[in-house]
Design a protein around this nucleic acid. Sequence first.
DNA 1: TTACCTGCAAACAGTTTGCAGGCCG
DNA 2: CGGCCTGCAAACTGTTTGCAGGTAA
Lengths: 147, 147
Amino acid sequence: MTLNPIKAFSDYIAAQGLKNTPQRRLIVDVFFKSGKHASTEELYDQVRTIDSGVGQATIYRTLRLLCEANLAREMHFGDGTARYEPIADDSHHDHLICTACGRNQEVVDVNIERLQEELATRYGFVLTSHRMYLYGLCSSCRGTPAK
Amino acid sequence: MTLNPIKAFSDYIAAQGLKNTPQRRLIVDVFFKSGKHASTEELYDQVRTIDSGVGQATIYRTLRLLCEANLAREMHFGDGTARYEPIADDSHHDHLICTACGRNQEVVDVNIERLQEELATRYGFVLTSHRMYLYGLCSSCRGTPAK
DNA sequence: TTACCTGCAAACAGTTTGCAGGCCG
DNA sequence: CGGCCTGCAAACTGTTTGCAGGTAA
């Protein structure tokens, strides 16, 4: 399966005639090693623990590159900030999000996936991908009414 | 079917001890009559063609009320702005989108909905809503490979 | 009368951009 | 060496909030 996404990125950089700088390498490395759905701020903090000289702008610019290279995807949950998800091909999952505490549980259900295929077929479509977001309240937030 | 959402809103207002002002009535009216997925800016413009004295803040505040009343839902597509979708209770649907021609087929599958509930329950969640986007190629686009 | 509302403008937060110098290729 | 990159800070954009004066109930 998956080629190292870090390698994939440097290939993309080269193919586009761009430059493979230490900052880009560091950011990409942190992004793929860190937990998923990192926000720019989280990435910024993590990157700066390693190299405190990196600027926010470079984080944004590199994330945009990653998206253009189809190695990351921008997502919006509920808070005001964009989050980024690595696209690893074999890491597909859906999202179960608590609207009270923001907790984001990644889920997969093969039966749902199967029904999605069937549904699409019924309309003459062949699926290539999908996104599913389930919103609700997690057990702890139901116990302690937020507000 | 559906109770008039405009009525539902004034009921909500009354139930909360809030006030039914002309600005709110105007905004809510425009929101439900306009096309779906309006952005705040589009709403603002439309509202101001009728009453140029309404301020942006009131648009935002009223949209928040609509969301709290469960009559609208905030969504994020790709542009930097939030969009709002009316919740009409009987109008729930998911999206089956052709990535070649952009065709957007609205679909519903009760079996998938049931499995979503089960899945959420398994994680201790109680669902309030969900969004599902299926991406693929429709029959006509498979015949004529785009790109 | 009394909260609640409103428009305005200032405040905010996230993101983008212009610039002068730096560095990859 | 030339063009792409970088950090910085200022600029932008969408959204929220404080305030002083209205207004629904």
